[in-house]
Amino acid sequence: MPTPRLKIENLFCERDDRVLFESLNFEVNAGEVLQVEGQNGSGKTTLLRILSGLSRHFEGDIYWQGESLDDCAQDYRESLLYFGHQPGVKAVLTPRENLHWYASMHPAIDLAKLDYALEKVGLSGYEDSACHTLSAGQNRRVSLARLYLSSAPLWILDEPFTAIDKRGVAEKEVLIAAHAEQGGTVILTTHHELAMGDKIRRLNLDQLAGTL
């Protein structure tokens, strides 16, 4: 049996005296898309923040390719693309400048396809306008353009489709499916009904969190 790409063992997390999940175990392999489901307050974002390494308020073990996350933090960060609630886009910079900065922070981001990526997220013509002149959805697209630029195998995407129009969502879905097909791994939360429904594994947190 091959080592699972990401393995979660006995994860326990509580917030404000409420247990969000307890003895949570699951594995994600190369080529898989895992959708984390649950109602508001079930701990979807918390789980994604724990998996990304941002939140350390948990007990249990997380293994990346068989190694404990504490022991391979550097390797893990190189392999990870995280898209959070806040898009991480500076309002006074242009989309191009924002992505340039992302490239300096993450070697997996390849700027050679920058124009292509901005075109794919529907921002051609806006490359050099300050982001505060763009809409909320466009700001999130700036950050989503990283999906076209990054060669990181693991994508953790928290509500990537919020404020994105239908066509945009469909394109991102194709992209996510393609990433999985090439051996990538995607963990995401979303309120959208995904068209690739049958190819996705689902993890429901409601029962664990008691928000059912």
Binding site: L80, G84, Q86, G88, V89
Partner: peptide, 10 residues
Amino acid sequence: DGTLEQILLS
């Protein structure tokens, strides 16, 4: 704006 998260995950 979420930039700090990206810095810490870099």
